[in-house]
Amino acid sequence: MAIEYLLVTFPEQRAVLADGNGVGFTNHTLMLPTDEYLITLGGTGYQPPSQDIALSGTSLVKPMVIAFTLPGAPAARPPSPPSAPPATPPARRGGGKKKNA
């Protein structure tokens, strides 16, 4: 059983529902088994009404990202996956310029 990663964006915090079952909140990456899902949000006042996704091939640093918007807002372009936090740069080895005392 493989675990995938899904990020659902929306201007407000809402429950994310997979086939009508709550799986977490918007704007936070979620874990879900590899599968096809019909994604909706809790409450009303969002568009599109649902999104059918085939969730596979994701990773923690590259989740699938889908967007819902408020009614009347322009349809969202598929957002770029948010970047992972920058890696800690490696420590400099000897050979660099020394500061003057």
């Binding site: 990020l7 977490g24 704007n27 936070h28 990456t29 874990m31 923690l60 996956p81 992972a84 936090p85």
Partner: peptide
């Protein structure tokens, strides 16, 4: 592995 952090999208797990 997922719990180790370093992922994008501010996971709460």
């Amino acid at each position: 592995a997922a719990a180790g952090g370093g992922g994008s999208g501010n996971p709460q797990f």
